[in-house]
Amino acid sequence: MSGVWIWLEQSQGKIPSIAWEAMGVARRLADALGDGVTAVLLGEGVAAAAEEAIAMGADVVQVVEHPALADFRFEPYLSVLARLARAGQPQAFLMGSTARGRELAGGLAAELGTAALVDAMEVSVEDGRILVVRPIYEGKLFARTYVDRSPAILTIRGRAFPKPEPDPGRRGEIQQVSVELDPSAFPTEVLEWIREAEGEVNLSEARIVVGGGRGVGGPEGFAPLRELARALGAALGATRAVVDAGWIPYKYQVGQTGKTISPDLYIACGISGAIQHLSGLRGVKVIVAINKDPEAPIFRVARYGVVGDLFQIVPALTAELRRRGLAKE
């Protein structure tokens, strides 16, 4: 039983920021335990990322390439990770708290007879034991937790930990691992992808989010918000009310039954601030609320408030950013 392992999530060969954030946590844990970091990279034609993984903190990178791993599928990915973990006996196995990361964490826990702690927002080592603080009840409470067996499986919450600075001088070992995978054992098939529009900022990774609620009045009402988001290099978000009304697709929904976001800045426009919306905001540094109604609950969580018409304030804000040369475009 040794080593801190991390599954290095990739999509089309690209490693998302959250995977590097998890790498930073893995490195810190390994140093505290006097141990090494092994990164596992699965896919096809992904080996290029292995060098980067070493610069980011890995001591060993196990690269597994196979046509059956070309696109993410739960069963073959889990099969490989479980096999490697049985052979390598890590003390901890980390991944980003993404949809895929959480699926694999639960699958690995079941396969290896251990447990997974998801959405870790604090990770520490005490008496050789890995302690995790994670939100429960939609972030209304925190739980201090640990896993009583090995490996402890952890998924790391996005934007809760810094992304490490790459050190091109770091040395490490890249191992090509070959595995036997019987394609007929994995009968699911990826037919196609409907990807987010190019150039749009990913909500879960965004540093700034501009959110719109029923106050935008209709689908066209998002136009000034989109413009502000472009000027800020921000992602667009929305409430369930406007998604249910069909004004904007579900992928923009923030909240309990939508996405969870942790930007530095959230600008809420025409949003009342229902608890189910607020539960999607985790660790946001600054909330700005623009609302006609001075009694709107959103002002209770906002750092800055503007009582007024969003159709006047939002364009003025975009213009001010442009005037000062702060706009991204």
């Binding site: 037919l191 992808w193 992928k251």
Partner: peptide, 15 residues
């Protein structure tokens, strides 16, 4: 089914 993942929807066929 269409699965909702971070970067979009993954369309998957399964038995």
């Amino acid at each position: 089914v269409e699965r909702i993942l971070e970067e979009g929807r993954q369309v998957v066929r399964s038995p």
